[in-house]
Amino acid sequence: MLLVFAVAAALWGLGWVLDVPRRSRIGVVAGLFLVVICLQLLLPDGHPVREMTGTSPALWLLLAGFGAVAVFYGRFVSGMRAKVLNAEREGPAKPGGAFSDTELERYARHIVLRELGGPGQKRLKQARVLVIGAGGLGAPALQYLAAAGAATIGVIDDDVVENANLQRQVIHRDADIGMPKVFSAKQAMEAQNPNVVVRPYHRRLTEEIAAELFADYDLILDGSDNFDTRYLANRVAVAQGKPLISGALSQWEGQISVFDPQFAGPCYQCIFPEAPAAGLAPSCAEAGVIGPLPGVIGSMMALEAIKVITGAGAPLRGEMLIYDGLYGETRKIALKRRDDCPVCGAA
């Protein structure tokens, strides 16, 4: 009997050395055992070949029975596993359609919220949000909007990821240095939630493209890093009657407000009629910024966006929230429309 096992092992080893496919090797070994079983059954008792290959067919038949059970069990288990994997991979759902079971489970913590519920999540699934800037504020805003299931998220930024960004811009990773920020952000968002559609625009927001771009979205988040873009975004948002969630920060302090001309509130330029003279309002590169601060303000922007989209609670319309990270203080002031505002006053 040992002789048969030795021959089987030798055949298997030879097949392995010659790179014969596993399936063929199994066939050869199974054939060998079949021949042995036939010999046991056909040859008379005491025949030398039969003596050499194990004397009795009973043992071989028992072994064959065990083999069959093992193969059957293996097939059954892998079949079940494939079934489960297929169920998990039922593919990204189309925006706007009904929720799949995977989506229902993913957004369960939203759906149980009284202010949001199924209808709120449905509105998120139809929402089109544009985020200006994939930097400090854009990073958490984009991540949370993607995680929350906002259907279509546009992101415009002309920068590439730099080493000095990574102390606070947590959507980008070390390996992304040198990659355009919008593509790095898109990768991270799709990895977080394959159900969202991300549209990256690797370019600067300019007067020429702003109107056409804004027209594709319901809501604009401004997390840009310069006054020119802020005033431009405000002008175009007011002209199209779209809510603008504006966040800004410097060093330890951040500001956030929802400018929504449809609700008779002020616009950005009502509050800040003129940009400060160059040099008086330093950028993050010049003045520094504490890493988690954009995380705080950018997350608030995402939260305000969800409120505006779903109608939950009271967004910061006509109000500005000031967060002073150095002293852990928040202050809120009521904003008013300026009748002589060149952007929204005449309207």
Binding site: G136, D222, A248, L249, S250, P282, C284, P294, I322
Partner: peptide, 29 residues
Amino acid sequence: EVFVGSSARIDLALADGDRVEILAPMQGG
């Protein structure tokens, strides 16, 4: 806690204990 436009600042008399917020526009993002 109520916004005061720049044109109204000259006439706005302050009283003891008033809370004044002075906000510089920020560009950082």
